[in-house]
């Protein structure tokens, strides 16, 4: 079957198998930032935005994105780098395998919640597993980043 969609601001039309999974579709197109960490839809590594909403690309069919807008970290590289600097300043990017999905969800959270409390942040990001960092460094990075976005602090 044929689908057309928008990925990171560019139009794509492709022939696909009806059961092609979105993550495989996107990786095949060269969006290699996407990572798969599980077969049970509960690690968060494969997070992308579909029409601006964070979704798991391992649990969507490419067929289902007809006419929709997909955003991967490649499409928000500047923002990712801006937040990434805060992560790096904490040393909280360890193996980095969880980073693309995690960062996409952090940026989605930033758009969706205003002035979230620590608990709200943790709750929003609960579906992003990380086996390396123990999460505390990520939390410090997020707090400093959100503060900086409000003009309060720098990444140091």
């Amino acid at each position: 079957m044929q689908i057309s969609c928008d990925i990171n601001g560019k139009a794509y039309t492709r022939h696909i198998e009806p059961d092609l999974v979105l993550i495989d579709f996107l990786r095949d197109l060269g969006f290699l930032s996407l990572k798969q960490g599980c077969d049970t839809t509960n690690c968060g590594l494969c997070t992308v935005w579909v029409d601006g909403t964070p979704r798991l690309s391992c649990a969507m069919l490419a067929a289902g994105i007809q006419g929709r807008q997909i955003t991967t970290i490649e499409g928000v590289e500047k923002e990712a780098a801006a937040f990434g600097q805060f992560l790096a300043a904490q040393g909280a990017d360890q193996c980095g395998f969880c980073s693309p999905g995690f960062i996409m969800n952090v940026l989605a959270m930033e758009r969706e919640l205003t002035d979230p409390s620590d608990d709200q942040i943790k709750h929003y990001l609960a579906g992003n597993l990380c086996r390396c960092t123990g999460y505390a460094g990520q939390m410090r990075a997020i707090t400093l980043y959100l503060g900086a976005r409000k003009g309060e602090l720098s990444c140091e």
């Binding site: 839809t41 509960n42 968060g44 997070t47 909403t53 964070p54 979704r55 798991l56 649990a59 969507m60 969800n105 989605a108 959270m109 929003y124 990001l125 609960a126 579906g127 992003n128």
Partner: peptide, 9 residues
């Protein structure tokens, strides 16, 4: 239930 991305779906 799992996480926000999951519940969005």
């Amino acid at each position: 239930i799992v996480g926000v991305q999951f519940r969005n779906a």
